[in-house]
Design a protein around this nucleic acid. Structure first.
Lengths: 192, 192
DNA sequence: GTCTATACGCTGATAGAC
DNA sequence: GTCTATCAGCGTATAGAC
């Protein structure tokens, strides 16, 4: 197991633990036993827990950038649906919530560095969605009366909320329903 | 300071701390210093932290029951708006989030007793909203195509999400916007 | 890079005096 | 009911050998 491998394995494990138990709900010891290394080795890669938290946020920020670039030539309606599906996949069969939902709830008990990076991640997603809604309106796919940025925020609230409730009640259908509600409210026709 | 007073003061303080920092983000020591008593005194009233967590959830459950009873003769539209306003007041000027949003995020790192009571609280609010939407549809105030329980859930997602984001970005306007969006989507006319 | 060993503060919790 | 005193355990974090 090489260095780079270990480092990304640590982040991957932290990621799973954070999205399941929250930032304060996991410890270096949890990671150490999960991947069979010692706590001190984690501190070598991430001296402070805050560093690991930031790495987690930044990873999702990069993943989202990559995801938007991979979309190619899809209609605005298709992009909207793709976003909901991608978001829903974070649920991991009702075991996890989304990064945004997690950092938003635990926000005030997180180190300042994580707070800043959280704001950036949320702003990044909001901006992408705002532009999507704006484009969808201009190109006649989305309802004209929508306010782009408010609709973008609305989408995040709904998808993020549905993941949390799906986990609590073990009802994956909540995520699908949230998607359908959003598509119906935002898109002009084809209620599907 | 009599006994009953101290007990309710402890719950009140726990409440503020939980809605700001989360269940794992506060300690008996935080409460003790906040109201100038010793940790052991808190353990007298609430032997385990879980007991205090449950008291917190149950208090909000009772408060919600009382709130719904105090509504009197209001139209369904007025009830919808009243709900959003009541919910928004939990924000406490962008310093707190809602009980549902908090327990939903930290769910898997909470003791089983708190999880159960959280489920009950959420179900209670969902049910009241479902009945409201149902009634609003039947009486012609709300849009007929809405599915009552999905709309109820949608409302919780949106209001709960808006409180969290309002806190992060210090934008109380997000809560008001969430309310207007919901009213517009659910009510038939008077876009306001 | 990974390990062993260790420091040390804070946590939830208990025993017992008043 | 509230206090002082105390506990074991776990948290993050560091030093230094290999």
């Amino acid at each position: 197991m090489q260095t780079r491998s270990t480092k990304s394995l640590i982040v991957k494990t932290a990621e799973e633990l954070i999205l399941s138990y929250g930032y304060q709900g996991f410890s270096y010891n949890d990671i150490a036993s999960a991947i069979n290394i010692r706590k001190a080795s984690i501190h070598y890669h991430f001296p402070k827990k805050e560093d690991l938290g930031i790495a987690f946020i930044r990873k999702y920020s990069r993943l989202f950038s990559l995801w938007t670039k991979r979309l190619g030539t899809a209609s605005n309606r298709e992009r909207l649906i793709a976003f909901c599906r991608m978001y829903g996949s974070l649920s991991n069969n009702c075991t996890r919530i989304c990064p945004i939902g997690m950092v938003a709830a635990d926000y005030h008990s997180m180190p300042a560095g994580i707070q800043e990076h959280s704001q950036e991640l949320i702003a990044q997603v909001e901006q992408w969605l705002t532009e999507l809604v704006d484009k969808g309106k201009k190109e006649g796919e989305f309802r004209e009366y929508l306010r782009s940025s408010d609709t973008a925020r609305h989408m995040i609230y709904v998808m993020s909320g549905s993941l949390k409730m799906a986990r609590i009640f073990k009802e994956p259908g909540r995520i699908k329903r949230a998607e359908k509600d959003l598509v119906f409210h935002i898109c002009k026709e084809k209620e599907q």
